[in-house]
Each structure stands twice: as structure tokens, then as C-alpha cells.
Simulated scan of single mutants.
Amino acid sequence: MNKKLKHVLKRTGLYALVLLIVVYVLAPYLWMVISSISTKVDLMEVPLKFIPRHPTLQNYKDMLLGTSNSTTDAASQFMHAMKNSAIVTVCVTAVSMAVGILASYAFSRFRFRFKQQTFMAILFTQMIPPIAIIIPLYMIMLRAKLLDNIWALTVVYLSFVLPFVIWIMKGYIDGIPTELEESAMIDGCGRLRSFFLIVLPVASTGLAATTIFAFIISWNEFFYALNFTSLAAKTLPVLITEFSSKYGADYILTCTSGVIASLPPVLLALIFQKYIIAGLTSGAVKG
């Protein structure tokens, strides 16, 4: 077998594998979108049609306006839950990035006592499974009367998003030569000014990628929101599980709410995909 044929076969196999992975990843989401524009008659039709006979956007209208005649009142709470998710996610992302960038810079550039131990303690928080600390956290929030409170939920989210940001951003800052800052400081820049004028622009790809990941982690969090909220601070991931009653699950509204809830992270990833890719690969090549 000559080299050209071997190369063609290898590329064909690679493309076939990529296509299989794409279908495996996108097929469930595509079916969710199809279900969201279908009627119950379409979904119960035998044999099942992948393209509904009577596609409709009424499900989205009912969801956004809260006018659905479903057996549950989850649809009427949808906009309230989306507002809660937006507030918590934006606050968590903003605070974790503002604090995390400064903390990661300190861990990367400064020397202080117990530096390594402190950083290891931060990483250790990422290794603790949520199920192991949910009971003590619940008891603390119960006694402090912070259950079903949107700001308390924000603090809980910060406890795992902030360590993630510090860990990731420290890796990016470690890859920036200190000579750049030293040159700036020789020219009269202070430490803080060189940080904003030199470090942040150079680490912009990593900064963008970390911000997007922090947003997605906060937006998709389910476990803590399920246990610490009931109505006032309920978020979208929790609400999506409530489109069911004693009469059964409403799969159409579940899919509709799932599509709407997935739009912010999906659009964010598509719009800033070049920053995500650049951020993930920025440390792959040393120059």
C-alpha cells in the first residue's frame, strides 16, 4: 500500500470518526428542537416523523408569556426563573473574574508565606464532591435564614467558580514572561499599571475563555439550586425538571424550555469560539 493511499484512508477514517461524534453530540439537541416545535399528535404518530407535519411556535409563545394550559404551573414561572438565572450567573461571573484574576496574578508573581499550601487548598475545593457538603451547607443556610435567597445562592456558586477561575488564570499568567512587566516598570509603570496594560492584554484569549467557562458553569448549575431554592430564587435548570404532574410529563414544554435555556451558553460559545479555541491552545506551543 503506497503512502498516498494510506494517507487517504487515514483521513477518511478520521473524518468518519468526527462525523460520528458530531452526530452523537448534536442528535439529542436536534431532537429536542424538533420536539419543541411539534404538537402532541406529531410526537405520538406511528411511525414517528422526524419532521413534524404541523410545526408551530405556539409552545415558545406559551412559555415566554406563561399562558400554557399544562397540568403544572411551571410555564408561568419560566420568566421568573430565567431572570434569577441571569442575575446569579452575571454576578457570579463578574465577581469571580474580578477577584480571580487578581488572586491568580498574586499566586503567579508574588512570594509570600504559605503560598503553595494556600493554592493547594484552593485546588482541593475542586475535588470535594457537592454531595459530601450539601448537608452542612444546608444546615448553615437554614439557621442563617438564607434558603431560597438569590444572593445566598450567588455566594454558594462563587465557592466553586472562583477556585476554577484562579486555577485556570494562574496557568495563563505563568506563561507570560516577567520580562514584559519588568520592561514596563523600568519605563515608569507601577506594578498595578503594568498588570492592566501588559498582563491583561497578553492574557486576553485566556481571559475570554475563562469568562465563558465561568458563565456556562454558573448557568448550568443544578444540584445546589435544587436543594437551596424553592420558588423565589428558583433557577432554570431546576424549573425544567418540573414540567410533570400526576398525569405525566409534558415532554413538549420540557423540550421547549430546554431549548430556550440552552440558547445563552450555546450562542456565547458560537460567537466567541475563536477565543475559546485560542485560550485552550495558547499554552500548547512555547515561543
Rank of each mutant, 00 (worst) to 15 (best):
N59Y: 02
M120P: 00
V161D: 08
A94F: 11
T229R: 00
I21K: 07
F160Q: 00
F112H: 09
F196V: 15
I135S: 08
M141R: 02
L236C: 05
N220Y: 00
T229N: 05
F160I: 00
A74Y: 01
G190R: 04
K274P: 04
V199S: 11
P130N: 12
C91K: 01
K286I: 14
E221Q: 13
R11H: 15
T256I: 09
K83V: 09
M1F: 01
S244T: 13
L137C: 07
E182G: 01
K10A: 12
S76T: 04
E182M: 06
P130E: 14
V8R: 14
N149S: 15
E179D: 14
I252H: 04
T210P: 04
R111A: 04
A233G: 10
G248R: 11
T72Q: 08
V266R: 07
C189T: 03
E45N: 13
R111C: 02
I87G: 09
K274I: 13
M63T: 07
A152C: 08
V33L: 14
M63K: 01
T72D: 13
T12W: 15
L64G: 06
S218R: 02
N220H: 01
Y251F: 15
F78V: 14
L19V: 13
F213P: 06
Y157W: 11
M32D: 08
T125K: 03
M44W: 12
L200G: 08
T241V: 15
S204W: 15
L137I: 02
K286T: 11
I271E: 08
S230T: 15
K4H: 02
F243I: 04
A225R: 04
